[in-house]
Design a protein around this nucleic acid. Structure first.
Lengths: 97, 97
DNA sequence: AAGATGATTAGGTATTCTCCTAATTAAACG
DNA sequence: CGTTTAATTAGGAGAATACCTAATCATCTT
């Protein structure tokens, strides 16, 4: 059922805020870290959890690392929630076979 | 952002399975417990976490307690996920102020 | 190569989480 | 009432989580 790692990742409010900040486009680790009252190592840990869960992707550019939201896992989450609410075997439209 | 308790509640795979089982209608604590390789007290704890998060409601009928899925919080979750994916300031309809 | 900067990894601590067994509450029923 | 059945609450052990400081890695600049 969905991705356990993703649900675990979303259980922390700091990590959800990080995703929120990435909503409008990619940001560097430092930029993101500045938005929280937390040390950089702690933030780095959160980034790695989000990456493990495939909720973000990363890209190095020189000294900086840019993080970007990966919406495909978020879509899976929505699919699971919809399934829960009864959007099941009703004109699925998703995967014909 | 959304309900932290709900996200925390969803972080556990057993609890997500419980919600899945409640998808087709209410079930008693015992019925649900039978579906898992876990003691009743452990299951009871999971029920209480789901209740605290408003993901389920409960009703006593004699000796049994019936649990039912509450989809309103699930809807909030979907709303948050959609917001994340860019469904923002686009005919919001949510909170005019 | 040395120094500065951006970021991660290593290691440790305090808290939270998940599960268990034992004890308790609540209701049904003889 | 005492017993059985359904479920919860209490208490505790072990694993996982979320922070921190110190140390390391990677890159750029001089």
């Amino acid at each position: 059922m969905g991705n356990n790692r993703a649900f675990k990742a979303l259980a922390d409010p700091t990590r959800r805020s990080i995703l929120d900040l990435l909503r409008h486009g990619e940001k560097t680790a430092g930029e993101l870290a500045k938005c929280f009252d937390m040390t950089k190592p702690s933030m780095s840990h959160h980034f790695s959890v989000l990456k493990e869960a495939d909720l973000i992707t990363s890209r190095r550019d020189g000294q900086q690392i840019w993080y970007e939201l990966n919406t495909t896992v978020v879509q899976d989450l929505v699919a699971w929630a919809m399934h829960l609410m009864g959007d099941d075997k009703r004109k699925s439209g998703g995967k014909p076979a």
